[in-house]
Design a protein around this nucleic acid. Structure first.
Lengths: 136, 136
DNA sequence: AGAAATTTGTCCGTATGTATC
DNA sequence: AGATACATACGGACAAATTTC
């Protein structure tokens, strides 16, 4: 049965179950999760699907992975769920941007903002501006 | 946001950006490009689209791919180096930036601005903000 | 010291279902 | 209808880091 994804995708469902095991202590902090090969058997999912589930846990801070070693359950996660890493908005061109893009002041531009973190700390904020093509 | 392809197909736009990074030296010759999985995240594109973009670069000679290894940036590039203007200035943190960096409003930040041109046209303006560490 | 096994990382090709232009 | 693109999922193969024998 290849690939219906009604409701929730499989990798999310799998992530949920693994997260449960970590939060409940069934997989104690610092312990290794079962290898991907085992998880593919347990969940009868392709390796890619398993890896995607684990990627979710990493992003949420529930696990860390080391090449050749395995994936460890993270200790304590009191992390506030996602402080937006990236966002996009439209904004009118100010004088400088208007000059650069050679459009009139007030023309709608798209601003993408990306927050670059290193651990807890914000290292940089990158904002990319470009003209809105979506009206052509 | 599912799938407009105005003007240029998405995979071409992505190829453009990656080519830019190779030509500009942001990805040095011989270095590995980010993995397909990362690029899907970076560009918020489907894997198939990313792979198409990379295929374009391969055909153009900007990259070579090795199975199980990754995609390398090719040396070469006698092309005229991208016309990009850059400038730097200091500015006080506004409310949003202050919140992101967890500093007080008004704290001096460094803003780097890069103008990315393609021929005559300005394609994008990138502004990078970071805290001024030079006093640490 | 060295070979083998284990495990993660990455790419390859393919497939299904949905949505938009 | 067709092209483009997204999200999801499968299975396979090769590469690289680590552990085990």
């Amino acid at each position: 049965m290849p690939t219906p994804h009604y409701g929730q995708p499989r990798y999310r469902a799998i992530a949920d179950k693994l997260r449960e095991q970590i939060e409940s202590g069934a997989i104690p902090p610092g312990a290794l999760l079962p290898a991907e090969s085992l998880l593919t058997a347990d969940f009868r999912a392709a390796r890619g699907t398993i890896r995607k589930a684990i990627a979710v846990l990493r992003e949420e801070g529930f696990a860390t992975t080391e090449h050749g070693r395995g994936t460890y359950a993270s200790p304590q996660t009191k992390n506030p769920p996602n402080e937006t890493d990236a966002r996009q908005r439209v904004m009118p061109a100010d004088a400088r941007l208007a000059a650069l893009f050679r459009v009139e002041v007030g023309t709608t531009l798209i601003e993408q903002e990306k927050v670059i973190r290193q651990g807890e700390q914000v290292k940089a904020v990158v904002r990319t501006y470009h003209v809105d093509d979506t009206g052509q």
